[in-house]
């Protein structure tokens, strides 16, 4: 089943990013962008960005920004963007810092890492579906309320006119 969640992978590790992208596509994420440095990703970000971002910490092979700096910029520009930290750093300090700064998850690169990224994205996808359903039912409630008010007003006008 195709999942309508856009994903951005930000990692300077070119082969692993390519493999992860193929893995996610194979698992239903049809729209996966790749960026090999934080700067080019931030350029692509807009205020209402609905992508989930899988962000590496050590981006030194790509640009000047590290993952924490990119995370800070993402949360400033587009607070609702979901960020999954994906790092080779098995460091408690980096993990705490990223979660404190608004990351949704912290995954250490390991044998099971690709599957963990998918599980984390699945959670983001489920949250988006719930939010969308909530917005839909709110809209339906409003339409029904307006419909009722129009009916009552119509009936009132009818009797007033008699």
């Amino acid at each position: 089943m195709s999942k309508h969640l856009k994903v951005a992978l930000v990692d300077d590790d070119i082969p692993n990013t390519e493999v992860l992208r193929d893995f996610l596509i194979r698992n239903g994420y049809s729209h996966v962008d790749k960026y090999h440095d934080g700067e080019s990703f931030l350029e692509s970000l807009d205020r209402f960005d609905e992508r989930a971002v899988v962000l590496d910490f050590d981006l030194s092979g790509g640009g000047d920004l590290n993952g924490l700096e990119v995370l800070e910029a993402v949360k400033e520009r587009s607070p609702s963007t979901h960020v999954i930290f994906f790092s080779g750093q098995d460091s408690l300090e980096v993990a705490v810092e990223s979660l404190k700064n608004g990351a949704d998850d912290y995954i250490v690169k390991s044998n099971a890492a690709f599957a963990l990224v998918k599980t984390s994205l699945d959670k983001v996808y489920d949250i988006q579906v719930l939010k969308l359903n909530e917005r839909r039912s709110q809209r339906i409630s409003w339409i029904m309320a307006i419909g009722w008010m129009a009916t009552i007003a119509g009936v009132a006008l009818f009797f007033a006119g008699r």
Binding site: D12, D13, P15, N16, V19, D58, S60, G88, K109, S110
Partner: peptide, 13 residues
């Protein structure tokens, strides 16, 4: 260290 860091994830994959 930077090279080891870069290559270790690939070696793992």
């Amino acid at each position: 260290r930077a090279i080891l860091h870069k290559l270790k994830s690939q070696v793992q994959t």
